[in-house]
């Protein structure tokens, strides 16, 4: 019987649920999209970005990944809730908040 979080669906029976609502994997919330909470979204102007990385630690939603090369990558819009902290801290005006048309 699966003990994976992905199989603990809302239709699961009590016999199939993991014991005591425990989960035996890390980071299963990565299956959850929180990007749909967003009204505004950050957009990065790659030409203006100096890779100072000040935007990366301020993100509450792990939406500004930094790669193995030490450079920030594009926003992870699956998680980004559009709080705008990153745009506000960017010293170079490289991040703009725009209305998220979905």
């Amino acid at each position: 019987m699966s003990q994976l979080a992905k199989d603990m669906t809302p239709s699961i029976t009590w016999k199939e649920m993991t014991m005591g609502c425990n989960i035996y994997e890390g980071g299963t919330s990565e299956m959850v999209e929180t990007g749909d909470w967003r009204t505004n979204k950050p957009v990065l102007d790659w030409d203006k970005c100096k890779q100072c990385l000040l935007c990366a630690p301020v993100c509450p939603d792990l939406s500004i990944p930094v790669g193995k090369d030490g450079k920030r990558e594009d926003f992870n819009y699956f998680f980004c809730k559009g709080c705008g902290i990153c745009a506000n801290v960017c010293p170079f005006g490289a991040i703009t908040m725009v209305k998220d048309e979905k």
């Binding site: 959850v32 909470w37 992870n76 998680f79 809730k81």
Partner: peptide, 13 residues
């Protein structure tokens, strides 16, 4: 991990 349900802009995470 991402996908947590804290409010947008929360300081805690």
């Amino acid at each position: 991990a991402g996908g947590h349900r804290m409010c947008a802009g929360c300081g805690s995470p």
